[in-house]
Design a protein around this nucleic acid. Sequence first.
DNA 1: TGCCTTGATGTAAGCGCTTGCATTACGATA
DNA 2: TATCGTAATGCAAGCGCTTACATCAAGGCA
Lengths: 343, 343
Amino acid sequence: MTTITNPHPAPTLEDVARAAQVSTATVSRCLNTPDKVSESTRLRVMEAVGRLGYAPNFGARAMASRRTRTIGAVIPTMENAIFARGLQAFQEELRTLGYQLLVASSSYRQDIEEEQIRSLVARGADGLLLIGHDRAPQVTEFLQQRGLPVLVTWAYDPAQAGVSVGFDNRRAMRALAEKTLDLGHRTITVITAPLADNDRARARVDGIRDAITARGLSVAGLPVIETDYGIETGGVAFETLMQAHLRPTVVMCGNDVLAVGAVKRARMLGLSVPRDVSITGFDDIDIASVVDPALTTVHVPHRAMGSAAARLLIRMIEEHGAVTSQELDAHVTWRDSLAGPPG
Amino acid sequence: MTTITNPHPAPTLEDVARAAQVSTATVSRCLNTPDKVSESTRLRVMEAVGRLGYAPNFGARAMASRRTRTIGAVIPTMENAIFARGLQAFQEELRTLGYQLLVASSSYRQDIEEEQIRSLVARGADGLLLIGHDRAPQVTEFLQQRGLPVLVTWAYDPAQAGVSVGFDNRRAMRALAEKTLDLGHRTITVITAPLADNDRARARVDGIRDAITARGLSVAGLPVIETDYGIETGGVAFETLMQAHLRPTVVMCGNDVLAVGAVKRARMLGLSVPRDVSITGFDDIDIASVVDPALTTVHVPHRAMGSAAARLLIRMIEEHGAVTSQELDAHVTWRDSLAGPPG
DNA sequence: TGCCTTGATGTAAGCGCTTGCATTACGATA
DNA sequence: TATCGTAATGCAAGCGCTTACATCAAGGCA
């Protein structure tokens, strides 16, 4: 390997100091505590900073000052609108609080999530935002060992350890399932994202089971198809379900994207929604009200969750105090894709 | 200010070295060049690493080794599906190449973009991915001064300096406008995202003008409404346009989200698309084929663009070579929202 | 005039890591 | 047995910054 001499060495504090005829300490103070420096010096220094195109080296600064004002977040994927929206709000709120956001994504894989968490910690994140509770024990242990503030979101499950801000996936889905049962549906089927390593998805399916059981009905034969996130995959799963000999009167989907796939496929199959079959979603993203018929779904306050998470996490960091989990409301949004069973 | 002694000091290389009874150099080698260390030592060291929950300090490592294997990207917003998708592909490709992605978002504001760029540079990014060409000159100058590899994407404009990978927004929109004119439309109107600081949006509108001018028609009276990104805002703009005394026969939208808003609003107003009015989009995101009628739009290869960008940028970094811009194909996708003018 | 306060600046010690060079141990070779 | 090569390890210099502490100049006051 040949060592290439960088033709553009980034200017350092020392370069600026030399250019402005002061010590590095003074330059540092100009940048961090300007009121501790005389006006004339400050002007001279800032001029040099501008002229040289100086930008402080973050690593060095973090090392010397032992904090970064940086928050790390690991989400499954940016392609999922629900995370994108919540994270955008999270970031905007962080900005007003003087923090920076570092985002990484895990593609729904626990091993990648672990790798990303370690990387964010190594980068000196002052706190971490994670999605859901499912996580290998050694990761939790690692985080605890570090005493790093960690906030879980997109989930609120009082049974879980750790602070979270989110909604109760299980209860919300149960509410929707109860409405479904109220309408007279008895042949329910479910399409969901893969359940392994995904407590939110599992909680939603459990919510459906809760509702069924509470009516004294049996949950034994409840068909549940797991499939990857996507409109197309949702459609395929829907078609499979409709080919069963006991055709469902309602297909409850674990998220809106799968539900939209189901609705589209229904039309292709010549089925009318909700006359021939009802379909429900979860999340209430844009697409839910765009599809025809519009989805009956569970509305999740993504943006509110993002900003609440930011405020809570910063409080954990700055006040070292014990904060408590916060539950947000997720309620059924009634639209057109759910009606009584046919006949 | 009271200084709080961190109750959980992160273990350092030295802690590991002490625990494993070796020097810090050996620990470092275990982590970076394991084959230069004897097996027995390596095992002992790795055990200590695991037991202490050691994670290397990124800042220190970057400082000592003078590289980070990190790429920075600044996008306008994660809420826009087109960026989310392209960036996801970008990140996946980077991972296979052994690089990490740092994402920041600018909310479509140049000043925030500048701030984020500087921050990513300060964090030691080995290269930068930026969206579009519009940028304050001092930013470009700063980047150039640093000699940092920068790749522009979501745009391909041979007239612009700098390397880019993307598609020709102007030509693509022109092609769509020509189809529109071919169908006999003469009363065209446009809904677009704000044009200031957004070369992609401007290029798209220019493409429409190109098509009109090429037919020998006048572009003078072409109504153009600028509005923020969103389904709702698109709907409002559409309604405004339809209230004009000379009602358009086609509304061309700068992106799919605005177009979907227009379609939804058309239905609310009791207008049939495309019988009463045609509507076109741009981007071909999921929502475009979900809305009814499905949007005639311009298909953009988001994921291909993301991975191509990753490969190109890494080549710029690792081979120091002059690479050339790469143009990807964006073509009209014909669906149902565009037909001939009424009557 | 001499002493003290105050504000502005400089000095230098790290922060945690990588890496060139020096050292050591040990088996192979003459 | 003496010599040498090689593999394994240690030593220590820095990477660019912050900050406690030292220093210094300039007034203010008795």
